[in-house]
């Protein structure tokens, strides 16, 4: 497990990181190193230059900002999972962070790194979609903020340009959130991950979103299922009926040795339903 030769650069600021990404040929960002380094050790990735942003100060904050959570790109999965602010404002996000990999991965891996990598089996993307997150990145042209729905393009692809650096993620606080996953027995990546958000007012579901990861090349919103739940009680019967429509969002499922695409769609129906049930209970809270 020896990576190909590369040059290492440590950036002390976001501006410096952007400059390095612009100047250095074939450069890749590394933060926690839990996506890039395994790929380099397998020689699946062979960047000529690696720009380390892990030492940039001030990028790992987790704060409540009014009705939102603002999480710095360098916040580790463990920090997100253990944060009282996250657990209180968005329990589904804390659940997703706690479900990532194993304890070593959670202690090193970062939210910014995970989002930029856009692994189809990652846990965060489905939550970002379902919870209505906005991702802020800084590039040579300055800062821009992208809605999660516009952020993920395809398998390992985002809208980020080569010299962009994610700096933070903004997530609206929502008590009625939940995340559940069926992990791959070897890799622990999500075979299916379901992120649900429900708001209830006067006994009726007023808002609902369901993100499904692990099934397609990128996380998707199960809009037909979510819409079907709005405008009535969050009863088990209505949730079950709505969940029957989750598969409509999953017309191009991917499969592997462990689980075929068709089985992943089946699992998505079950996990989506369960996540909606938990989110509904919390929303009624």
């Amino acid at each position: 497990m020896f990576p190909a030769s590369f040059d290492y650069h440590s950036a002390s600021s976001v501006a410096e990181a952007i400059e390095m990404l612009q100047k250095l040929p074939d450069a890749q960002l590394v933060a926690g190193g839990h996506s890039l380094i395994p790929a380099m050790k397998l020689r699946a990735a062979q960047p000529a230059n690696v720009v380390d942003i892990a030492r940039i100060p001030g990028l790992d904050g987790i704060e409540r900002d009014g009705d939102d959570l603002v999480i710095g790109a360098l916040a580790t999965h463990a920090a997100v999972a253990d944060s009282a602010a996250v657990q209180g404002a968005c329990p589904g996000l804390a659940e997703a962070a706690a479900a990532i990999g194993d304890i070593q991965v959670r202690n090193r891996g970062t939210i910014g790194g995970s989002l930029a990598h856009a692994d189809p089996g990652a846990d965060y993307p489905a939550t970002m979609l379902a919870f209505g997150a906005e991702i802020t990145a800084v590039g040579p042209g300055g800062e821009r903020t992208v809605a999660a729905a516009d952020f993920f393009v395809d398998l390992f692809q985002t809208v980020l340009d080569e010299a962009d650096v994610i700096t933070s993620v903004r997530i609206p606080a929502a008590a009625g959130t939940a995340y559940l996953k069926h992990p791959h027995p070897a890799s622990s990546y999500a075979v299916v991950g379901a992120a649900a958000r429900i708001a209830v007012s006067g006994g009726e579901v007023t808002a609902c979103a369901l993100g499904i990861g692990g099934v397609a090349g990128k996380a998707v919103l199960a809009d037909a299922a979510a819409s079907a739940l709005i405008g009535g009680a969050a009863s088990d019967e209505r949730i079950a009926a709505a969940s029957a429509r989750i598969g409509e969002a999953l017309d191009e499922p991917l499969g592997d040795l462990y689980a075929s695409g068709a089985f992943r769609v089946h699992l998505a129906g079950v996990y989506g339903k369960r996540a909606l049930q938990i989110a509904a209970t919390r929303a009624a809270g």
């Binding site: 397998l42 791959h184 070897a186 890799s187 990546y189 592997d256 040795l257 462990y258």
Partner: peptide, 19 residues
């Protein structure tokens, strides 16, 4: 399960696939 495809490709070369 250690798996070879019908073409003899080794499908479980890492602990990402083999559990």
């Amino acid at each position: 399960a250690g798996v070879y495809s019908d073409d003899g490709d080794f499908m479980t070369p890492t602990l990402l696939e083999y559990a």
